[in-house]
């Protein structure tokens, strides 16, 4: 495996970052569309506020600018592994609720689940390149959701999709920071303090 800072690793790193940025931007656009479909199909009010949902990784980050490249990748990977399971649960619930009659929400959910899985794999590759290797999957499965009422289930789904949309933007920013500094850059990738 190429050491983290060889030319080929740098090229590969840059390629993975830019492909990752494109995938994250596409995912964000599809999640935004999915949110519209979800709100409409589930009969929810788009402006409803949803409290933090247990087991859903929050995209909000403090001192984001000071994170190291590896921290960014690890945070992203943990988040998207969790979203992969959450979306799979939602897909299952959605099939139970709406069955095959629904030709819009199910496919849209499945498409986003596919992108989340692809992006998770992408992050694992990047971590491999950081000569660090992606952490094992055990323990990253979110706890089985508590028995919820139908309305609570719908709200939870809304919370999941909203956080995912925020994560997609965060991932674009994270990958840009990574692309800026090359592989193996454990150092904090701060924001210039010019202003």
């Amino acid at each position: 495996m190429a050491a983290a800072d060889t030319p080929s690793a740098t090229l590969r790193h840059h390629d993975l970052c830019s492909r990752g940025i494109r995938l994250a931007r596409k995912m964000r656009s599809d999640v935004t569309d999915l949110l519209d479909i979800y709100v409409q199909r589930q009969g929810l009010d788009a402006s409803i506020s949803v409290a933090a949902v247990d087991g859903v990784p929050a995209a909000a980050a403090e001192r984001w600018a000071e994170q190291t490249g590896t921290q960014r990748l690890l945070d992203n990977l943990a988040a998207y592994r969790a979203f992969r399971s959450l979306l799979a649960q939602m897909l299952e619930e959605q099939r139970e609720q709406l069955g095959d009659a629904d030709a819009e929400l199910g496919p849209a959910l499945a498409a986003v689940l596919l992108q989340v899985s692809a992006f998770t794999y992408h992050l694992e590759e990047l971590l491999e390149l950081e000569s660090r290797g992606a952490p094992a999957e055990e323990g990253s499965e979110p706890p089985a959701p508590p028995r919820l009422s139908l309305f609570e289930q719908k709200l939870r789904g809304l919370g999941v999709l909203r956080e995912l949309a925020q994560w997609a933007v965060r991932s674009v920013r994270d990958l840009r920071q990574l692309a800026k500094h090359g592989p193996g850059s454990g150092a904090a990738l701060g924001l210039p303090e010019s202003q």
Partner: peptide
């Protein structure tokens, strides 16, 4: 203080 927050 926080970025990428879903909280309004």
């Amino acid at each position: 203080l926080q970025l990428f927050s879903t909280v309004k």
